[in-house]
Nucleic acid binder design. Sequence first.
DNA 1: CCGTTGACCAGGC
DNA 2: GGCCTGGCCAACG
Length: 96
Amino acid sequence: MSVFKRIYQVVQEIPKGRVASYSWIARKVGIRDVRLVGWALHRNPNPQTIPCHRVVKKDGSLASGYAFGGPEKQKILLLKEGVRFKNNRVKEEYFL
DNA sequence: CCGTTGACCAGGC
DNA sequence: GGCCTGGCCAACG
């Protein structure tokens, strides 16, 4: 099993209404280079099954991605799931 | 095959 | 506090 696929599995394990940071996923997968996580999501082979909008930066701010239509779109999706923001950042209590 | 490049992060200056 | 660096994995040209 490649590191790549394990990243997607971890992302899919994120429950609705919670978020995970890139570094959290990297630790879970067992790699030190967190860029791989971001890079894997950038590839995003099947957006249908991968909730990439639940992945945010360590400080709670949104990543500048485009696979979900931009940070604005991502914020809307998270708000719909009940994730609250504070000063344009996800609150600590929503992290896994 | 090899250099470059990332949806990032922590540590050192 | 901000800027620089290393991290070391996979895809792309």
